[in-house]
Design a protein around this nucleic acid. Structure first.
Lengths: 241, 241
DNA sequence: AATGGGATGTACGAAATGGTACATTGACGT
DNA sequence: ACGTCAATGTACCATTTCGTACATCCCATT
């Protein structure tokens, strides 16, 4: 895989940069393939790269020694993994791994710092993304605390759908149960409810989104706020300097 | 109230600065009293200041039009409110209000930007705090998704205890139920359980922490990770430059 | 001392989720 | 075609939390 010129970059954070700003970091960019369950950020281990996803989906999870584990963030071609480096933090308790395979453009730590310093627009878009990601985490907390499993599942499917090509993606009930912090049979049952209502179609290891509009209605206000904030601040957000 | 000289500053973010760095922003600092239910950050409204708490506790919450509402962060003398300004974001869906009265040192938006630019150590400590705050949000999401009400209540009481002077603070069951995203009678019942075990003592509108160690055992691993990360990165974290 | 309202105590049945166990099925390698 | 195993389907009861209703109790104000 080659380093793409700016016009072929899908990543939402890199593609909003001016051509000359992108050119300034292009040489530091290295394309990498992302396989299922690959770990981009290992908890408590030194971070080496920031990953700008081009395709595929990554999950950011936190866990405890007792084995509890839950997804607190999701990253696709709109974002990046390895944000602690932006915060001058070398390692973190979070874990980030690939949920759905794809590719990323990654930048080494030193080059990332240099780019932050030298390219104001890059720093800005990274900071704004960090805000949106944090907001996403806040709504994840709200979902886990105040929404039913059916609503949370609808929310997760919508977020995943936003980040993949097409209407179908590979995911098992087992994984979904970990992401949502519930037990696996509950996921199976709830998937049947959504499928019975004609909103999705489930095959072994795959889910297809059939009626996105109705899924949004099921998800209610658990979905949408961080997404709108992303559009406001990044897609449409002016990046002066 | 006067602007304190550095040696009398309690705020954990300001007090780690070198004297000369603190002196550089001292003239921009304005002390303000924080009364119960005062709003520091109004959702969707332009941010005007960053508040470094000296005493008291603030809650960061997110909500939905349907009226659901939950706490995703808590701020005391270890931190600051108004972080979106750090991210080059002028307004946010979050709301931040005072839970327990106190005082803060606040800095206007323009002076805050200037300080970030001119004082590397200040920028660093703010970024690191943003990371810890985000981590706190992640563990809040984990708590809401994977811990029982009793565990979550214990966690909240510990976090509040960390941020007040003494072992007693004013809080109603009603407020706690909003913070934890559960119904109010459940809070009452759970408080009785903790009280029966001799971990806390409850009076009308007040809760006293009697046995912090046992509370930690009840809270389990829902409490502690962000706190340790704060100590690692800020209290003990070198701030070169 | 009266009184009004916020705060708390309590009590259900209803609903959602957890915990566990086990049968079935589809995909893949041999 | 067969065997194997991950993935899914289903069942059932225990536990937790919700929803709601209402009684009681502090305590500041009058």
């Amino acid at each position: 895989m080659l380093v793409p010129s700016k016009r072929y970059v899908r990543n939402g954070l890199l593609s909003v940069l001016r051509s000359d700003d992108y050119a300034a970091i292009q040489s530091a960019i290295e394309p990498v393939a992302l396989g299922r369950k690959d770990v981009l950020v290992q908890p408590e281990q030194p971070l080496t790269h920031v990953y700008f996803l081009e395709r595929g989906v990554a999950s950011v999870v936190v866990g405890t020694p007792e084995g509890k584990r839950i997804e607190v963030g999701i990253v696709g071609h709109e974002g990046a993994a390895g944000l602690p480096l932006l915060f001058d933090v070398d390692s973190t308790p979070h874990e980030t791994f690939i949920q759905i395979e794809g590719e990323a453009l990654r930048i080494g730590k030193a080059a990332f710092f240099r780019a932050l310093e030298q390219i104001p627009a890059f720093r800005k878009v990274m900071l704004r993304y960090a805000h949106v990601f944090q907001l996403h985490m806040a709504y994840t907390a709200l979902s886990h605390g105040s929404y039913t499993l059916e609503e949370r599942l609808a929310r997760w499917l919508l977020m995943c759908h936003d980040r993949v090509d097409g209407d179908e993606f590979p995911i098992t009930h087992e994984f979904l149960s970990i992401m949502l912090g519930v037990h696996r049979p509950g996921v199976t049952t709830t998937i049947h409810v959504l499928e019975g209502a004609g909103l999705i179609r489930a095959r072994r290891s795959f889910i297809e989104i059939v009626n996105r509009e109705k899924l949004r209605i099921v998800a209610g206000d658990s979905y949408g706020v961080p997404e709108a904030e992303y559009r406001r601040l990044i897609t449409n957000g002016a990046l002066p300097d």
